[in-house]
Write a protein that binds this DNA or RNA. Structure first.
Lengths: 186, 186
DNA sequence: TGGTTATACGGTATTGATACCGTATACGAT
DNA sequence: ATCGTATACGGTATCAATACCGTATAACCA
């Protein structure tokens, strides 16, 4: 076995960020960080469906199509999403993916997962708030998010208002720049 | 060569995030994302000192000691730092490191680098665009940004429209979620 | 058991964002 | 010299966002 390959494999395994490889949403390989982040032993995780790593079947279905178009075009995609630890505790992650099969993006995916620290200590987001936030980060309007979730646009506006209050921000733009990491630009 | 190792090596190389391995600040291995992020061919990068990847010798010296203590204690460290692309353009990164040699952290380091600005590097933004983006991330309206910069609100709207076109996003919320990367734990 | 919060929805009023139309100057590249 | 882009500004039209008013149910907690 050549040294090059061995070095890369070791770097993958010891990487300071969670990484995983999937084929059609089944985990084919992951590193130690990934398994630790989700509270599993790697041996118990390999070969499993990603379903068990999401909070619900609905969430699992929801995230499937998100980013498919971006991956068909650019080969890569990133967003923020909620994962589910083995003990049930949700983990909010910066998710990045690159596909090796652009024609069928999910066929061979390489992913990285970086846990996001919540802005408010202890103030975790509700399921609805995360769903709405997901739509907002994709640039959807309240009307569009309502359609996606089967709710009235008015309800989405309520959730938005609650998010703005919780994070003490003036509008959605400031909210999204706080949810991710925004530096001053000068 | 076993399949396990081969899979991990491939995942390392095709990872959607820049990764590198160093021995005493000399690059021993990196993946495609890392080389691309910094504008090099991997072949020209391996074996080089990290010095060439920082904006100045002073910065190279400064970052050496940062995080040494954290790595001796936890084995890992992360911050945001400026890297220097081959063409001289600075790139802001979320930097993460794990050492495999806690007694002498720099002896064997595994690192990941995520550009804080994703789709487009910050250098491609004009001064005006950065000024306006700064206001937007603080939740200011076009009118308020105009006051701050001594410009007409209409001009701010022009800059916003240009930003939306450049990044191919639907609105300011999506823009800000693309411009910034997640704030990680630690 | 009452208080708080999340959820869900309706109306209305105001402000903001975005997309067009237009003009004009400046600057760098081909 | 002309093309493209950034800058800067004006008007108008339309849709979205936000802030209020209200009601109602369900969950949880002290």
């Amino acid at each position: 076995m050549d040294d090059f390959t061995r070095k890369m494999a070791q770097a993958f395994d010891a990487a300071p960020i969670g990484m995983a490889v999937s084929h059609h949403r089944v985990l084919d390989m992951c590193n130690t960080s990934f398994a630790e982040m989700l509270g599993y032993d790697r041996a118990n995780l390999l070969g499993q469906s990603f379903r068990i790593l999401y909070p619900s079947h609905a969430e699992f279905d929801r995230v499937r199509d998100i980013g498919l178009k971006a991956m068909e075009e650019n080969g890569s995609y990133s967003d923020e999403r909620m994962m589910r630890r083995k003990d049930g505790v949700p983990v909010w992650c910066r998710f990045r993916a690159r596909t090796l099969t652009p024609d069928d993006p999910l066929a061979h995916l390489i992913m990285s997962f970086a846990p996001i620290r919540d802005q408010l200590d202890g103030a975790q987001l509700t399921k609805r708030e995360r769903e709405v936030l997901s739509g907002l980060s994709r640039g959807l309007t309240s009307k569009e998010i309502g359609r996606e979730l089967g709710l009235s646009p008015r309800t989405i506006e309520d959730v938005r208002a609650r998010l703005l209050r919780k994070f003490e921000v003036k509008n959605t733009s400031e909210l999204l720049s706080r949810m991710s990491y925004a530096r001053p630009t000068n």
